[in-house]
Design a protein around this nucleic acid. Sequence first.
DNA 1: CTATTTGCTATTAAATCAATAGCATAATTA
DNA 2: TAATTATGCTATTGATTTAATAGCAAATAG
Lengths: 116, 116
Amino acid sequence: MTDIPRPGQPVRGSRSGAPIMALFDLIGRRWAMGVLWTLAEIGPSTFRHLQEKCETISPAVLNQRLKELKAAGLVHRVEQGYAVTQLGKDLYLHLVPLGQVAKVWAENLAEEPLHS
Amino acid sequence: MTDIPRPGQPVRGSRSGAPIMALFDLIGRRWAMGVLWTLAEIGPSTFRHLQEKCETISPAVLNQRLKELKAAGLVHRVEQGYAVTQLGKDLYLHLVPLGQVAKVWAENLAEEPLHS
DNA sequence: CTATTTGCTATTAAATCAATAGCATAATTA
DNA sequence: TAATTATGCTATTGATTTAATAGCAAATAG
């Protein structure tokens, strides 16, 4: 059920399981990046607290994503509940610059509204 | 049908449509990052060529993702078919470093196989 | 004991994704 | 000119994933 994409195994985008494609397969799931991002931002927290911070995520999906992120070693359990691992933090830090891209993107769309 | 997440509008992860969450909502869809990545790597190309490069994507999904990426201004049509826009390239360039993270991640998993 | 918090599952429904076939148009070739 | 090929898709049918909601069992607090 919980099927985690593994580098070296066939994944979306690469029959040979290229690491980047395996990673895309993992974090390219609904809420995956949002959960990682949020957890990294708020620090160690309980399931419910994280759920609140994600604003509209359902417990079922949060639980699913947490399972996957845990299995992938990006998140782990701590006394306080859940937290990102070192690897998870590394990934988060690489996601941070996307915040700037997102802003530029938002501005672009504001100027020139999407036509579809 | 084609529902593109827009910054400023409610999206997954943010009722107020925080740009980063809107972006996550957009590129956190099956194949979205894979398509953007592949297209950026191979340069302008036809629908079919891109489809081949994505190895296992179906035309329906590729078409859907292209629509969304176009509407979001990350991809556009050119004489040769499809290509990433400047904004799309910017995003791609920010995705490139994830390749390294992915490698480390792959090595970690290889050493310590996931326990689930 | 009672209430609350926490992590999570059950259920049911809706949305998304996938696999395959195949069509319409335009360019190319025979 | 007729046939072939390339291209960008759509239609159809299922399978999978996501969603919304309720609620439960275990641990903790009062």
